[in-house]
């Protein structure tokens, strides 16, 4: 339980520690972005740090660490439901990679036609 006076008194120092570590991690994010980790390495590293920071905010500042399983069964259900929908949403972006127009003509999708070189079939016929 996070809402008794005694518990919150203990949490106050956690708020400070987490606040400072979030600012330090921001510095780390920036520093790490100058190092090259390969094609998609930088994206993965930056997202891992961002997820860690987000987890700190959600668990300490938003009290999920103390509350989630004890008190907030409803919130837990809402979050699982949201996670499923969010995963589905992100899966849609993967789906777009298999876009039929892109794979059949090996040119970018319709959004990028204007800046792309003219597709081959237009020359052929």
């Amino acid at each position: 339980m996070s809402d008794t006076v005694k518990a919150i008194k203990k949490h106050v120092s956690w708020y400070m520690i987490v606040g400072v570590s979030l600012i330090v991690l921001t510095g780390v994010t920036v520093g790490v972005s100058y190092i090259h980790f390969g094609h998609s390495g930088n994206i993965v590293v930056a997202l891992i740090i961002a997820t860690l920071k987000a987890a700190l905010v959600a668990s300490i500042f938003m009290h999920l660490f103390w509350d989630m399983f004890v008190k907030m069964a409803v919130i837990f259900k809402v979050m699982i439901f949201t996670a499923i929908f969010f995963t589905g949403l992100m899966a849609l972006t993967l789906w777009s990679l298999k876009d039929e127009i892109r794979t059949s003509s090996s040119t970018p999708g319709p959004l990028f036609r204007q800046s792309a070189p003219a597709p081959a079939e237009e020359h052929g016929h």
Partner: peptide, 15 residues
């Protein structure tokens, strides 16, 4: 709102 910015900052500024 803070949490959203934590993702926005690296995605828009750094990557």
């Amino acid at each position: 709102v803070d949490l959203v910015w934590i993702f926005l900052f690296p995605v828009l500024y750094l990557l």
